[in-house]
Design a protein around this nucleic acid. Structure first.
Lengths: 218, 218
DNA sequence: CGTCGATCAACTGACTCTTGTTCACAGTCT
DNA sequence: AGACTGTGAACAAGAGTCAGTTGATCGACG
């Protein structure tokens, strides 16, 4: 399915208006693109999250000649699917027939439509979201939501639980989002922060040697 | 950025109508989700493509206990970023100031909403406008400067002819259902052969314990 | 119709994937 | 608008999977 077909499919949710569908699609994509480009992770519950990932410089190989060359650090977009999307794609969960087919007030340009979608009309279709029965998802062993708080009491995992004082990545001061009430430094969007917790058993500085001399390990 | 914030950002493209923004977002995501769930690849030029990938059964390890267990075949969603998105995220390319500020026309339904919209849009516009850049980003073609990590192998260039170019694509028969309406037969975007390539050079013994015949069940 | 984006090849290293636990966020109710 | 509750998400760790890269070509997109 290419972009045109996607817009065509979307149009059914915009009263068949392809312009509105195209606009919606591009708005969403463009917004996500901009946010990701800014380095902001875009997390969409139930779908997944887009984020910018920093790829360190590394040695790559020209598949044609086999020559090794160093590619410098770059940023790449990364998408990780959310739990619900995975469940749906894997077939464990099914989507409702039509989540909210009726646009609330997205009447393209017809004032009449807006009039039609009076305040009360929304109450009908709007509320029903994916509140379906307790889907038994879990393709196999994956227990859905069994809390079972009782059993967790005795002897938890010995290893030191994650200390609240996380690593302090010197990345960048995360500019406060819209809601500034958040705790600072919580984010730490960096990938594997260096130094971590310094496990005594092994200290594989995996990042360090990677960039240096993959050709000659010794 | 969470979903709410994304909707808020989107609202600026829908005249501040958050409902319309939410609807647009959910429509797009839901449509993509459904298409992917059906197994149809959703390719959006310039952004990326979503597709369902079949993951073969394999032996996995429980990180806590270390026990080996067999995970059965499953489908997972996969997203691959497009060229433009990569370029933007990497900083090689800049987005135009505002793609299309004016939506087709989303009918706001009440004056109250309009008033709110106005207020919000003012603040929003303030920050967005500041980003106004000359844009006009000349199509830097496909080589936006950064793509030159190495200067063409000073002396490495292989002899007369490089690799033996293309070989006959003697892959497997395209036993694919190809639900696409207009999917060209030639394409045959079938996945990698499950059995992988079994070149004689590789010792079969090495592969044996790998995944297909993982020794014995614990 | 013109231009550009996506695909494919082989090899390798970076990254994903598993279960279980905890936390904070998201969604919904009041 | 505020608060509660459900739950998505991150972490751990080892092993295996797969994505990345250059260049040419086909087909998509405008």
């Amino acid at each position: 399915m290419n972009k045109s077909q996607l817009i065509d499919a979307l149009a059914t949710r915009f009263e068949g208006n392809k312009k509105a569908a195209a606009h919606a699609l591009e708005s969403v994509l463009d917004t996500i693109t901009r946010e990701v480009a800014k380095g902001e992770k875009v997390a969409i519950t139930g779908f997944g999250s887009f984020e910018k990932r920093v790829r360190e410089a590394r040695w790559v190989r020209n598949p044609a000649t086999g020559a090794r060359m160093k590619s410098k650090k770059t940023n790449v977009p990364k998408f990780s699917a959310g739990a619900e999307l995975k469940a749906i794609v894997s077939g464990a969960k099914k989507l409702p027939a039509r989540a909210a087919a009726r646009p609330v007030a997205v009447a393209t340009r017809t004032a009449a439509a807006a009039k039609k979608t009076a305040t009360k009309s929304a109450s009908a279709a709007k509320k029903t979201v994916t509140k379906a029965a307790p889907a038994k998802k879990a393709p196999a062993k994956k227990a859905p939501a069994k809390k079972a708080p009782a059993k967790k009491a005795p002897a938890k995992k010995a290893p030191a639980k994650k200390a609240p004082a996380k690593k302090a990545p010197a990345k960048k001061a995360p500019a406060k989002k819209a809601p500034a009430k958040k705790a600072p430094a919580k984010k730490a969007p960096a990938k594997k922060a260096p130094a971590k917790k310094a496990p005594a058993k092994k200290a594989p500085a995996k990042k360090a040697p990677a960039k240096n001399a993959p050709a000659k390990k010794a």
